[in-house]
Design a binder for these strands. Structure first.
Lengths: 179, 179
DNA sequence: CATATTCGCCGAATGATGTTCAGCTTCAAC
DNA sequence: GTTGAAGCTGAACATCATTCGGCGAATATG
């Protein structure tokens, strides 16, 4: 009997899906990670050690990837934000293009489905620096064209929210999807 | 306690442009904000109280907007990432559309220059939820169309980096720009 | 040129907070 | 009923954040 449970335990990773209490903790930490565990526990309805243990577990399991300071783009001298769509010849995702991640101006790199191949989020000091970055991208073998969307104003920008909308207003197509 | 003395000093602008030492501190905090001030000071070449004072000032001045935990999208049940371009009739930026910020699925809202008007970054549980969100967007008065770029893979996603690339390889256009 | 003032930093002391521990309760499996 | 695991709590302990006085450098002032 004990053998079975032991065996089961061993291949079970500490991975455990987060529950409602974890979500409350995450919700608070996503807003402000500088709160004390006492205050955090109070918000989530538990004691400080309990909050500490759950947060520790979420860090281990990867549910909390990291805790970081968010720098103000203007204060660090990078007021210009742009999204760059990159088209490539053949199947994109070239390792050469990934090298642009070494530039601190590049914040995100995604491959996407749609008329573009690769999508970049970049933040530069001015249009001059953006031009320099675009020139660098064009120099990459396989890149055929780019389209840049320069951000005029940002109205919302926040980290991943733990909340999930449960019930969307059903699309009124006159019929319901099978899946 | 300390608030009173702080209040007295408030007519003096604490606004001061960040220097190289501040940038080193920011660079460390953007990677990991859980380090102790002792370790932080060591990385930036100063004592713990010095690091503490500079960080405190950067928080006050807004150079550090907030310190947050980054949740893993997959762990919180939102594995699907998409960028949605929204076209609107007339001058977009409708207050009605800004209401979508109440959905935890919406992470960014920008107005952009280019063929699109408004750009959203959204993260949903599945394609069904994305459809629900798009339906909600289409219901907004003035919205004429949307184009969605569903992310296949994310290769880089990080917060604002304090570093700035000083010298870009000059665009080889055969002539130099005036500005 | 000498002096006063401001500013930032350091080392040490203090108070708050993170972290661990033993014991209790609940729950499920057997 | 019994056993074992898991999670929580309050209290003890260790660590760290935060404050304070004093020092040196740089700048302003006489």
């Amino acid at each position: 009997m004990g053998e079975e449970t032991d065996a089961i335990r061993q291949n079970r990773l500490p991975e455990r899906s987060i529950d409602a209490a974890d979500r409350r903790l995450l919700g608070a930490l996503v807003e402000d990670a500088t709160v004390s565990y006492a205050e955090l526990g109070e918000k989530a309805g538990m004691s400080a050690p309990a909050a500490h243990e759950r947060v520790k577990r979420m860090r281990r399991s990867g549910a909390i990837r990291q805790t970081v300071a968010m720098a103000d783009p203007r204060s660090v001298g990078k007021p210009l934000l742009a999204f760059v769509h990159v088209d490539t010849r053949g199947w994109g995702k070239t390792p050469e293009l990934m090298a642009v991640s070494s530039f601190p101006e590049v914040e995100e790199i995604h491959t996407v489905a749609g008329d573009a191949c690769i999508l970049l989020k970049v933040r530069t000091e001015d249009t001059r620096a953006l031009e320099g970055l675009l020139a660098r991208i064009y120099d990459t073998p396989g890149v055929t064209s780019t389209r840049s969307y320069v951000v005029l104003s940002t109205y919302l920008e926040r980290p991943v929210q733990p909340g999930i909308t449960q019930d969307w207003p059903a699309p009124k197509l006159g019929t319901n999807p099978i899946y």
